[in-house]
Design a protein around this nucleic acid. Structure first.
Lengths: 97, 97
DNA sequence: TTTATAGTTTTATAATTATCAAACAATAGA
DNA sequence: TCTATTGTTTGATAATTATAAAACTATAAA
């Protein structure tokens, strides 16, 4: 593996740490991990008490980093955790949140 | 373990993530972990290229979170990584930086 | 077609954070 | 004592980030 990929990996790890340093995003990730399957944004909102636009903002951050993925069905959006991707970068992290 | 301690632990984890989300602090922690022993601030400065006052600022942040400890000897200060403490909170984290 | 629902984007604002120059404190050695 | 070294603190500034209201988009259902 060359140095550029190492730098890329390091940057991704730092972004994951950034994501998890915010209480709201931390809760979102924990919730998704503990339920073990995708959740509707609305459903998430019921468990994590934050304004819907703030929620949307955090979900976008998580999506852009690569931590979550989104699936649209009708007028609902389902958010899922990219467990394997995170696990590849920082093994064991999720299980110790 | 009661809920207050859980919250305290969660807060500490989030602070560790915050610390590691900054490139400078990430490098400091990696350096301390890889050398495996304490380092003088000056020595750290030679390896991690940041302004000395910025370095001091980051070292204070790390110290206040609990990630590092400092020992003064003469006019030198030695920084060491609180490996065990971090390992207790987030097992395996350091080895995957 | 109208209305309600689900979520995003825009805009504004407040708060936090990172950076570095300059001044400062403390100690070792000449 | 004087000076160089080691590091901290202060102050100013720029950049980033979090929050929420309001406007907006898109779809489902009445």
């Amino acid at each position: 593996m060359d140095i550029k990929q190492l730098d890329k990996k390091t940057e991704l790890k730092q972004r994951i740490f950034f994501a998890l340093s915010d209480p709201g995003r931390y809760k979102i990730v924990c919730m998704l991990y503990s339920v073990g399957h995708e959740m509707g944004c609305n459903e998430l909102n019921q468990h994590v008490e934050i304004d819907k636009s703030t929620m949307s903002y955090h979900l976008r951050t998580l999506r852009e980093i690569g931590i979550t993925s989104t699936r649209t069905q009708g007028r609902q959006k389902y958010v899922s955790l990219n467990k394997d991707w995170i696990e590849t970068l920082i093994p064991g992290l999720l299980s110790h949140l």
